[in-house]
Each structure stands twice: as C-alpha cells, then as structure tokens.
Design a protein around this nucleic acid. Structure first.
Length: 314
DNA sequence: CGTATTTGACCGGCGC
DNA sequence: GCGCCGGTCAAATACG
C-alpha cells in the first residue's frame, strides 16, 4: 500500500473546512504535531483523536522518512461533516499557520438543558388558563424541548480526508462496525463504526469520495472518554519508543518510525518495519500483567484489530 | 463458542 | 401527510 501526498482539495463555500498543507502537518522529518500551536483550551484535533501531549510530543514518534511524507489533507468541520461526493479535488490549501487560529478546532459550547427542568413546575396561575392557551403552551414546550434535544445530540464532529487505498485507517482505537449504508449518487458505501470501549460513545464514519475514489473521508463524532490504547502505551515511562541499542527489560519497543495518519497495520506492512517483530513485541508487552493491570486493558485494546487480523491470517 | 461483521428492517428528521 | 434519506438496531452469518 502506498499513500500519496494530497494537496488538491476544494473547499466547499459553506463548510468551515480547513486543510493542512502536507509540509506543515508535522510529519516531515523534523517538524512535530506539537508545533501546531493548537489552542489547548479547546478541543483540538489531536485531542479529539485522543492523542495527548505526552504522546505526540515525542519527536521520534512522528518522524517519518521523506519518501513517506504522504500526509493527507486534513479538513475539520465544526457543524457539518464533509460531503465526499461534493468535494472536488481542486485547490486551496491552508497551511498550519492558518489552522493556528483554531476556530474550527473549538468545540461549540452546548447549552445546558436547565430550561427543560422547569417544565411543569411553578405555574402558579395555571388555573386561569383556558384550553387554547394550554395547547399553545404545550406546543411551544414540545418545540423547545425538541430544539434543545437536537442541540444536545450534536457532538463535536470533525473529518479528515486521506488519500489511501485502504478504507479503514487505524488510529490507535478499536472500533466495531455497526452499519453500512449506500451513499446516494455514489458507488461507495458509507461505513459506521463505534468505539468498542463500553464507556465511550465516539462514532466514526468512513466513506470514499465519489469524485476521487482514492480519497477516504473519515468523520469522527464525539470525544473519547478514555485514552487511546496506543496513547497509553506511549505515555507509560517504560513504554516509550526506545533506542533498540539500549536494552530495557520489559519495555515495549515501538517502531521508531510512526505517524498518526498511518495505521498500525499500515505501519506493520510498511517496509520500515518488521511486522512479525512488531506483533511479537506487542505480545511481550501485553503479557506483562503488571503493566496492564491498573488500566484494565487487554491485548485487543492495545493491538488494533487490523494488526491482530493480519496476525491471525499468518 | 465467543466475537466481529453483514445486511435488511426500522426510526426519525426534513423537504415538498 | 408522504416519501426520501441518513443513521441505527439487531438477527443472521462468518470467522478464529
């Protein structure tokens, strides 16, 4: 599999989409995601992905060889998702300096539902109301309730587009597919995934761009309530990518060449890595019960399903 | 046998 | 009110 750099995306006029120039996304040889200057007080792109500072600030984690400098264009949508069928590959790239303004990375504040809680209470002069007034009020209440509930349902959502031959891009989390729908005017179906963590309600939609089948549009909805299994690995002191020349008993040596936009599986398939060694190291890590016990994670949480599948098929 | 995926049915929102 | 469409459910199926 080969991923290519993608710079030709057209912004829809009404969508607050932001695209990040390949060379500024932090996957070039020495620039980092942490150089992003994302407003940390808001819900950032990386936070939505569940990657925390302690993870992506590690230089070695995001170093990538020049020939693999494929970073996909990233688009972020605050209110609406990307509509793959309408995104034509054409122009307009905004560099990471533009992203630093951060307006689309901010999570829209959701109003409280306190207005609802007053429903049916404190109506002291209700006796004088006639039926018409009551009916009108009921309708208004229902309408208000409906509006609030609609707002409440709106989860922070963002999407990014990746030029890739594979549909499902691993991101460190485990997902369970719960649906697939045919997309109107598109030969490519839309796949629906849900985070397998019981306490997490994050959803993910994956579909191919109709106008350019080589582009995969991944839309995330919600925010993970738990750290990324991969993030957990990386954040543990003895689990950071280590220099293989410096032996560390019990340490899980992750591949030194790693990129957020590339899946674990892709990594394993990449000629930069030895897949068997990668899986074996994962096993070694996961067999260390002391390391896993306090976090309640298991092998499947740590190893993305695609990697595990790949192992099964061997 | 347990778990993940598939896929048709169902539901709710929205426009006409 | 009706139909279309996006999203979700859940039974059936596949797979290890």
């Amino acid at each position: 599999m080969k991923m290519e750099s993608y710079k030709d995306i057209k912004m829809e006029d009404h969508h607050p989409m932001y695209f990040i120039d390949n060379n500024n996304f932090g996957v070039t040889n020495h620039s980092l995601i942490s150089d992003y200057n994302i407003n940390t007080s808001s819900l950032g792109f990386m936070e939505l992905l569940g990657f925390h500072q302690d993870f992506y600030s590690s230089a070695s984690v995001f170093e990538l060889p020049k020939e693999e400098n494929y970073c996909p264009a990233v688009c972020v949508s605050e209110e609406e998702e990307v509509k793959p069928s309408s995104v034509a590959p054409e122009n307009q790239i905004i560099s990471s300096s533009t992203i630093a303004t951060g307006n689309v990375l901010n999570t829209p504040s959701t109003p409280n539902c306190s207005s609802i809680s007053s429903e049916g209470h404190g109506d002291a002069d209700g006796e004088v109301e006639n039926h018409e007034q009551q009916n009108t009020k009921t309708k208004q209440q229902l309408k208000a309730k409906k509006t609030v509930s609609q707002k409440k349902q709106k989860e922070p959502r963002f999407a990014f587009m990746t030029k890739s031959e594979v549909d499902f891009l691993e991101d460190g989390y485990r997902w369970r597919k719960y649906g697939q729908k045919a997309v109107k005017n598109s030969p490519f179906p839309r796949n629906y995934y849900r985070c397998t963590n019981a306490t997490c309600n994050v959803k993910k939609r994956v579909e191919r761009c109709f106008s350019d089948p080589s582009i995969v549009v991944t839309t995330y909805e919600g925010k993970h309530t738990h750290p990324s299994p991969m993030n957990m690995m990386m954040s543990r002191p003895n689990c950071y990518p280590i220099n293989p020349l410096l032996p560390s008993p019990g340490a899980f040596t992750l591949p030194m060449q790693f990129n957020i936009n590339q899946s674990f599986n892709n990594l394993a398939m990449n000629n930069q890595l030895d897949h068997a060694a990668f899986v074996a190291q994962g096993r070694r890590f996961c067999s260390n019960t002391e390391m896993l016990g306090d976090q309640g994670i298991d092998l499947q949480d740590l190893m993305p399903s695609a990697v595990l599948k790949h192992e099964y098929n061997r």
